[in-house]
Amino acid sequence: MSMARTGTRPEHIRPRGGASAMRKKTFWLTTMMLPATIWLLLIRYLPMFGIVMSFLDYKLPTRKVPFPLNLLKSPWVGLKNFQFLFTGESLTMIRNTIGYNALWIVLGLLISVAFAIMMSELSRKFLAKTYQTMMFFPYFLSWVVVSYFLFAFLDPTNGMLVRSQRAAGAAAVDWYNTPAYWPYILTICSLWKNTGYSTVLYLSAITGIDRSQYEAAAVDGATKWQQTVHVTLPHLKPMIVILLIMNVGKIFNADFGLFWSVPMNSAPLYPVTQVVDTYVYRAYTSTGNVGMSTAAGFLQNLVGFICIMIANGIVRKLDADSSLF
């Protein structure tokens, strides 16, 4: 906090009033950070010693060897706890996790950009507002609630679709036992819940575009389509790119509720609903092994970390101000 260091700062942010004012400012601003900092240290950083459990054959704490001394008594097993993530069926779940995420990133992008553009062209703004309000609604619901919504249609005994199929004399589809439908159903659910949110984002960006640019294009004889391609899309590009990269950073993380609650945890659907998060949870409940579940969580963190670092690196190249750190 020496004068010399302050002196190296660019003119426009150099504090007025010299070192003591600078110190005072730093002090007061630091007090603002205290509550959340204490929280982060206690609830996020303190438990991080637990990562060591990924590499141990965890022994239970007892009265004689209480937690966390039991960790010293737990033998080091290296990468053994990670093995189960790479045996047998785990390829399917890795394929599902990455596949769904990739598909939904692309579809979500196309649909919400299209919706946003359509909405910006509506002349009755009241209706546009109403659509927007309705489309935003699913974003606020928990997946458990959504699973009930879906169940009302697909329930094998009372579901509306099932009953109407029977009423029409057709054989009712056994929804919760037929994996073939679920990639579509999950996709619809995911889009249904999230499209409203991203449409709102893109729409706001479009309304921020200076209208005179469109008018100038129109005078030059550009059609509406040409205007969209040459005016709207270029303006949306930075936002699209950043959102895209943010999502890519999360490609190894699945939405647990969607893959667990929405298919009603139905076993025959696992080949298409099994993702990293559900796989780990199921493996934990079937073996009760603390080491394995910590290991899986740690691996996921690690992959996520690499993805985010890459994503952040790209963002920084494109627009330094937008990078996360």
């Binding site: 053994k80 045996t87 047998g88 056994d174 076993a267 659907l269 073996t287 394995m292």
Partner: peptide, 22 residues
């Protein structure tokens, strides 16, 4: 236990529907 963790996930996907003829 490593095998069990993997096998349990496989078995879950088939057992009930085979048990019930689905």
């Amino acid at each position: 236990e490593n095998e069990i963790a993997a096998v349990a996930n496989v078995k879950e996907a088939y057992a009930l529907s085979l048990f019930t003829g689905a």
